[in-house]
Amino acid sequence: MSYSSVFVKLLTLQCLVILCVSQSFDFFYFVQQWPGSICDTKRSCCYPKAGKPAANFSIHGLWPNYNNRSWPSFCNRESLFDHSKLSDLSRMQTTWPSLICPSGNNSKFWKHEWDKHGTCSEFVLDQHQYFEETLNIKDRVDLLQILQNEGIQPDGRNYSIGSIEEALRRGIGFAPGIKCNKDASGNGQLHEIYLCVEKTGSKLIECPVLPRRNCAQHVEFPAF
């Protein structure tokens, strides 16, 4: 075997090792967002061309993460997003809408989620599986109903962050991570809820680490 052949093989092996390392991760964050908190900001929002989404938590994404709070991203720029592979997942339009301006058909949002996060889980989930498993988790976890069962409503009132966390922990069986943003007047409001999922994307788990909370003791749950 020539020196050049050995060099090429070693280089190929090195590239494969680098790719695997870049795509390894410890768990997923499954993130849902409250549309009223996206729209009730100085930045405001735009509804997708399909119309105003339902007044319910919607999917932000399924994000590979490490146990040290860091995460991989954009792991394979050669793995192009293909909308046609999702033709049987029509419920994405209602459960995974984009509220970013200008309005669109949601595809740009999904492409971003695949490019940045999905490609880092590609060695366990292909593109269709990545989106389907995310939708399946959403189907099993009705955050709004869980909160409403505990008297926490999207009615513009303030609720203690502790009561929100405890209601979700009781309803789901696992402690959630919570992120807040600010409304147009600068008041804190419930924005995103993080749950953790094991690496195959199918089972909720207790979070190895929770995202750092950026919420005050009491936050608004705005109407939508």
Rank of each mutant, 00 (worst) to 15 (best):
F109S: 00
W110Y: 10
E113A: 01
W114Q: 05
D115V: 07
H117I: 02
G118V: 01
G118E: 01
C120H: 05
C120I: 03
F123V: 13
V124K: 08
D126Y: 07
D126N: 13
Q127W: 09
H128C: 02
H128Y: 13
Q129D: 13
Y130A: 03
E132H: 12
E133Y: 15
T134H: 06
L135R: 04
N136T: 07
K138Q: 15
D139S: 13
R140C: 01
R140E: 05
V141W: 00
V141E: 01
D142M: 11
D142H: 07
L143F: 15
L144R: 15
I146Q: 06
Q148N: 14
N149A: 12
N149S: 12
N149T: 10
E150I: 05
G151D: 04
Q153C: 06
Q153Y: 15
Q153E: 13
P154G: 08
P154I: 09
D155Q: 04
D155M: 03
G156K: 07
I161D: 02
I164H: 02
I164F: 09
E166G: 06
L168R: 03
R169L: 09
R169A: 12
R169F: 11
R169G: 11
R170S: 08
G171C: 09
G171I: 08
I172C: 08
I172T: 09
G173A: 03
G173T: 11
G173N: 05
G173W: 05
F174P: 05
A175P: 00
G177Q: 06
I178M: 06
I178S: 02
K179E: 13
C180R: 13
C180Y: 03
K182L: 13
K182R: 14
K182M: 08
D183P: 08
G186L: 05
G186V: 02
G186P: 00
N187H: 05
G188L: 11
L190V: 07
L190M: 09
E192K: 11
E192R: 10
